[in-house]
Simulated assay, not measured.
Amino acid sequence: MRFLVDTPGLVISHDAANDWLYCDWRGQHDQESSQAACLLMLEALRGQPCRKILNDNSGVTRQTMQLTLWGAWWLEEMTAAGLQYLAWVFPRDFMMRQHTEQALQHMQRPVVVAFDDVASAYVWLQQRP
């Protein structure tokens, strides 16, 4: 794995064996820090084009963010940068889980699927073309 971004709240690396980005979120995040981290993901994807991302939020200790119009814009930008599949591992105590899962069901591009653990997300992502 080659590190692309290393901040206290987010570490992004390129997994060359699988040719995807691994985004490891850590600590506490609110709407502002989540958006800043998402912009780092977009920058990393533009710098290291990949079709897949393993978005691991299992290390998030507290998250108070919501999917908003900004989030829809961000996903459009990620798609334009080449993203096709995003495996999203939710934090353990994600209060907006049900709302987020319902919103994800209506998305067509990129394909975003939520998981409870990294292992399941990893397997699913490996099975994508």
Score class of each variant (00 low, 15 high):
M107E: 05
D19S: 13
S33E: 03
A37R: 13
M107S: 09
A17F: 07
G59C: 15
N57D: 12
W88G: 07
W124Y: 09
L42I: 14
L69G: 15
Y122I: 04
L4F: 07
E32N: 13
K52F: 06
V112G: 00
L54I: 03
Q66Y: 15
H29W: 07
M1R: 07
G27K: 04
I12K: 04
M65W: 00
N18G: 14
T61S: 15
K52M: 00
H14G: 09
D93Q: 09
P8F: 06
W20L: 10
T64P: 04
Q98N: 10
W73S: 14
V5C: 01
V11K: 07
L83A: 11
H14I: 05
T68M: 08
A72S: 11
M78G: 01
P8L: 10
L42W: 01
H99K: 12
L104V: 11
V123W: 14
A44C: 11
C50K: 02
P49R: 01
A121H: 03
S33T: 11
Q31R: 11
Q63I: 14
I53H: 04
Q48D: 09
V112F: 08
L86H: 04
R128A: 03
A37N: 11
A37I: 05
R62F: 12
G27E: 07
A114E: 00
E77K: 12
Y122R: 15
S120D: 04
R46E: 02
L42K: 13
Q66F: 14
L10M: 14
C50M: 06
A119D: 07
V89R: 08
E77T: 05
R51A: 08
